[in-house]
Amino acid sequence: MADIDLVNRDPNNINDHIKVAFEDVLAEPEAAHSNNCVWTNSYKCFNCWKTLCYTISTLMCGICIAAEWGCEFASIAFYHVWVITPCFKVLELNCGICQKLYGLCIHCCLDPCCEAFGLLFSAFKKDC
């Protein structure tokens, strides 16, 4: 197992869509400014509570949820290895035989008819 990166915890940027900053949520237009003290403390309060709630939520639920997702992906891997991939192999083999049988029937039944019609219509030549 590779060492875990404690600094860059989203190296593949899969959660870029939830990067939310104060400026993304609250913004005052030029005509409506609150007191600087209110705005500054709102900024601090927003970031504090966002961090605190996330930290408490992950502390209380993160390990259990990670365990559940680990089980979920293990189950998916199990079904793919032991059920889904073998089913696809069975379908591939059976469909291959059906394809050969269908091809033989088409070539045996339709090829002579098509050749006969081709010879028949080739007798009608267009005079230009």
Rank of each mutant, 00 (worst) to 15 (best):
K19N: 14
Y54S: 09
C71G: 06
N36K: 15
T58P: 04
P29M: 15
Y54N: 09
A77V: 14
C64N: 13
V25S: 05
D24C: 02
F73H: 06
T55L: 05
C64L: 09
V90M: 12
C53A: 15
C61Q: 07
W39H: 00
G62D: 01
F78E: 05
N8Y: 03
I76V: 07
A27W: 01
T40N: 08
G62Y: 02
F46V: 00
I14M: 00
K89A: 08
N15W: 13
I65D: 03
L52C: 04
L59I: 01
E92D: 11
D24P: 01
N41Y: 14
E28K: 02
H33V: 11
A67E: 03
W82K: 15
C48L: 07
C87R: 13
I63M: 08
I56T: 05
N15L: 15
A77F: 11
H33C: 12
D10C: 11
H33Y: 12
I76Q: 04
P29G: 15
P86H: 04
V81W: 06
I14N: 00
H80E: 12
F73E: 12
F46D: 01
C95V: 13
I65N: 05
L52E: 02
V7C: 02
C87H: 10
S34N: 08
L59R: 01
D24K: 03
T58Q: 12
N15D: 14
I14R: 03
A66I: 02
V25N: 00
A31S: 14
I14T: 00
L52Q: 07
I18P: 00
W39V: 10
Y54D: 05
A21N: 12
L91A: 15
C53I: 13
E30T: 14
W82P: 03
C53S: 15
V25P: 01
Y43I: 00
I63T: 06
I63D: 09
I56V: 10
I18R: 05
E92M: 08
S57I: 01
V7E: 06
A77G: 11
Y43G: 03
K19A: 11
D16P: 00
E92Y: 12
D10E: 08
I65S: 05
H80C: 10
F22T: 03
N36W: 13
W82L: 15
E23K: 08
M60S: 06
R9F: 08
K89C: 04
K50T: 03
T85W: 08
T85N: 14
V83A: 15
W82T: 14
L26Q: 07
I14F: 04
C95M: 14
F22A: 02
F78K: 05
W69P: 00
E28D: 06
H33I: 11
N36M: 13
K50N: 00
G70F: 00
V38A: 10
N8F: 00
W39M: 06
D16E: 07
